[in-house]
Design a binder for these strands. Structure first.
Length: 785
DNA sequence: TATCCCTACGATGTCG
DNA sequence: CGACATCGTAGG
């Protein structure tokens, strides 16, 4: 008797016999659905099918069946044969041949993660699966209902340590915390009294590990979320478990928990969605921060951080001394970390879920994606085309040698301006792609010719005006859907239950639409098209130039423009003027291109270049109607300047722009320089932080941050790519000292005054008529500077 | 197996 | 000293 079961799939695993799909049923039983009838296919030109047959004969592989589509033939195979054939027949110009089957299964089967799916088939017995039920499916179908409550369990480990960093060979895991909406537990193996009920004592590290695994399995989360856990907790767990010969039974199949390499070392828990959310936060959300520690990221995203005052040394002390109240505090610390991981995962979940739907990929995979992969999977899932293979390394290198012209930037005239109006294009590049049908296969089509298609004179190419390409179709869709959502959002109160959901959806659509253009010009792209990428920016320049010209015609004073935006002072400064400007422009623009009014500012300054003549591009400050500052490109928003200079620059701008009191600004500036001069400034304010973008030995320069990085390495810090060097400029021949080794009396006051403070403000004061001499003049009167 | 593009500024060190 | 190369980080 066939059984019918509805379930929410979360993960798939490919074996040579078929695909296991894992998930929970509606009453939260663990289920594995076995799809033995999945036959992956590849496509090739019909004239190459015989060649493929010969190769298959040699390999002893049979075609499952074939199917003609246009000029191409799809050939289906058994899973176990697929990779072998695809590899051996590479020279036959194959399509859809190098896409991971585990990921592709979802797309071929049209099943979405966390979406109710009907499975019909016979129950199977499979002792090696850790699930409540196994079904051999003859039929699978998506019922298109999303799972509405997703259970997220956050987790975090604490370990002892002998040095600055825990060593998994030497140092034990001392406690593990788990946190979800309705559950919290800290497991530890040193007893103390009194203790809170959520603290569970065990007798050894081995029992701790086993209890953790048991807890996860009993909690049955959809998502197991860590922060930085691919780098720390998971590898640590695996090493410590091995030491005690413990089998980590987290996976729903018989396999042991292991680390995979998918660009990045990551753990995958078979069955549920394990996510180290730091990947997504770093790669997709790309917070404006110079490092991605849990504390900093949580403060930015959740408005709260870790429990203060802990580090590896302190944790180690607490553990070895063993005072009850201290151990209790350590448990709190551990639990808060797990809670932060859980809340971060919860926060990004709506966007991730939307991306799961757009790419057809499970959460674990979406969490690891970059912009490139996001676009790639979006195309694989949604485009009605055959997928070409990834380019080979040589090809990628060759592509990377060419580059093309980008956006237009208007040089500003340095000065202070009042009543500034800002306009910008809504999604410029996506809307250009959609309106001009820019796609690799619509370029230079024979059906149109130069006169019939969308011509780009400057590049001597054209795009078909008869048949829509796959890129414009997908991008146009994204732009349109996003606009629809934004329209609804505009009429929705932020307190409305649907608001954050809609917000997440429009964000997800934006991420993909915005990355499409870059993906066309990306060397490792499957859909690389130098000419398409070039055409997009070329049209972008054409349209912004058209807008600048029209603004000029209307008598607007053009202050600045960058790629898709312009800042002007209008003639009469009325709403009607702005409105008619937009009307003129938008009647010229082809849909869905659109110029929008962005904001009006009370005032703003555009700075002169520090070296050479003229105005500096990408460096300005604006004052909103509410008297708050918007800064672009300035030192105050750069990560590689001292807090002292950054703060001072902001304060000076606030005084000069909002309070319009240059004398007060000058007095304030002098006060700060004097403080620096008398060695009174805190080192934390003087530290300069710079991130290494490459391995230390590959530097061809002795720049201060490289010198400092070498000092850090000598002290045993893990100086790798991405390492954040914190140093202070000092007097004496070495010039540089690590922040941690510096004393207040050692800092080089002259450097901080000349190269940090003055350099951060002199171009601003200049606009207000205060030259460099005047800024320095005040200093000479004080204690013989 | 890593996986988005170009434009721009400015700091610093080195060389002639 | 200026020209230039190297490097990091920003804007869009």
């Amino acid at each position: 008797m066939p059984t019918e079961i509805n379930f929410y799939p979360s993960d798939a695993s490919v074996t040579s016999e078929g695909v296991f799909v894992f998930g929970y049923t509606q009453d939260k039983k663990k289920i594995a659905v076995f799809d033995a009838k999945y036959f992956p296919w590849l496509a090739l030109a019909q004239e190459n099918v015989d060649g493929l047959r010969q190769i298959c004969n040699k390999l002893g592989v049979e075609f499952k069946h074939t199917q003609n589509e246009g000029n191409l033939t799809k050939v289906f195979f058994n899973i176990k044969d697929f990779d072998k054939v695809a590899r051996e027949a590479r020279q036959l110009n194959l399509y859809n041949s190098d896409i991971s089957l585990r990921k592709r299964w979802w797309i071929d089967r049209k099943i979405l993660p966390f979406t109710l799916t009907k499975a019909i088939g016979e129950p199977l017995s499979r002792a090696n699966l850790k699930v409540d039920m196994v079904l051999g499916a003859d039929f699978l179908d998506s019922l298109n209902t999303s799972l509405d409550t997703i259970d997220i369990v956050g987790f975090d480990f604490e370990t002892s340590s002998s040095g600055a960093f825990p060593d998994p060979e030497l140092n034990a895991i001392i406690s593990i915390a788990l946190y979800s909406n309705n559950f919290r537990r800290v497991i530890t193996w040193k007893r103390f009294a009194p203790h809170e009920p959520h603290v569970t004592f065990v007798d050894s590290e081995a029992e701790l590990i086993e209890e953790f695994v048991r807890s996860v399995n009993e909690l049955k989360p959809h998502i197991l979320a860590g922060y930085g856990s691919d780098n720390f907790d998971m590898p640590y767990l695996i090493r410590r478990a091995k030491k005690y010969d413990i089998e980590l039974e987290l996976n729903w199949d018989k396999s042991e928990l292991s680390l995979k390499r998918s660009g990045h070392r990551t753990a995958r828990v078979v069955g549920i969605s394990y996510c180290d959310v730091s990947h997504f936060i770093r790669r997709i959300l790309a917070l404006d921060t110079d490092h991605y520690s849990l504390d900093l990221v949580a403060k930015k995203m959740l408005g709260k951080g870790k429990l203060a005052g802990f580090n590896a040394k302190r944790i180690n002390e607490i553990w070895s001394v063993g005072l009850p109240e201290e151990l209790a505090l350590l448990c709190d610390y551990n639990l808060i970390d797990a809670q932060l991981a859980q809340e971060l995962a919860k926060k990004i979940l709506p966007v991730q879920m939307e991306l799961c739907k757009l790419t057809g990929q499970p959460l674990h995979d979406v969490n690891l994606m970059t912009y490139g992969t996001l676009v790639e999977w979006f195309v694989i899932k949604n485009a009605d085309i055959f997928i070409p293979p990834r380019p080979k390394e040589m090809e990628v290198a060759e592509r990377q040698r060419h580059s093309y012209e980008g956006g237009l930037v208007v040089e500003p005239i340095p000065g202070l301006y009042k009543d500034i109006c800002a306009f910008d294009f809504r999604s410029l590049y996506p809307s250009i792609i959609a309106s001009h049908n820019i796609s690799p296969e619509t370029m230079d089509c024979s059906c149109c010719g130069v006169r019939g298609g969308f011509a780009i004179k400057e590049e001597s190419i054209w795009f078909c005006s008869k048949k829509q390409g796959f890129v414009p179709k997908l991008v146009g869709d994204l732009v349109e859907r996003r606009k629809r959502i934004n329209d609804i959002l505009a009429a929705t109160s932020p307190s409305d239950a649907s608001f954050s959901e809609l917000m997440a959806r429009q964000h997800a659509l934006k991420f993909i639409a915005a990355a499409f253009y870059g993906y066309l010009g990306f060397g490792a792209s499957r859909f690389y098209s130098f000419d398409c990428a070039k055409a997009v920016t070329s049209l972008g320049r054409k349209y912004i130039q058209m807008v600048l010209k029209e603004a000029n015609k209307l008598g607007f004073k053009i202050l600045y423009g960058d790629t898709d935006s312009l800042f002007v002072v209008m003639k009469n400064d009325t709403d009607a003027e702005a409105k008619s400007f937009l009307q003129i422009i938008n009647s010229i623009l082809p849909a869905p291109m659109e110029l929008e009014f962005k904001a009006k500012y009370r005032s703003g300054i555009f700075l002169g270049k520090k070296s050479g003549e003229g105005g500096a591009k990408k460096r300005y400050a604006l004052l909103t109607q509410g008297n708050s500052l918007i800064l672009r490109g300035l030192e105050a928003i750069r990560g590689d300047w001292s807090n002292l200079a950054k703060r001072t620059q902001k304060e000076i701008l606030q005084i000069l722009l909002a309070e319009q009191d240059a004398e007060k600004g000058l007095a304030h500036f002098r006060k700060i320089t004097n403080n620096v001069k008398t060695q009174k400034t805190e080192l934390e304010d003087l530290a300069i932080r710079i991130k290494l973008t490459r391995p230390l030995q590959s530097y061809a320069t002795n720049a201060p941050h490289v010198v400092a990085a070498k000092l850090a390495k000598a002290k045993g810090h893990p100086v790798r790519r991405g390492f954040l060097v914190s140093y202070v400029r000092t007097k004496g021949p070495d010039k540089v000292r690590l922040l941690e080794d510096c004393k207040k009396e050692d800092y080089d006051a002259d450097y901080y005054i000349e190269h940090q403070l003055l350099r951060a403000v002199y171009k601003i004061f200049e606009i207000f008529g205060y030259g460099l001499e005047k800024l320095k003049a005040g200093q000479t009167t004080l204690e013989g500077y």
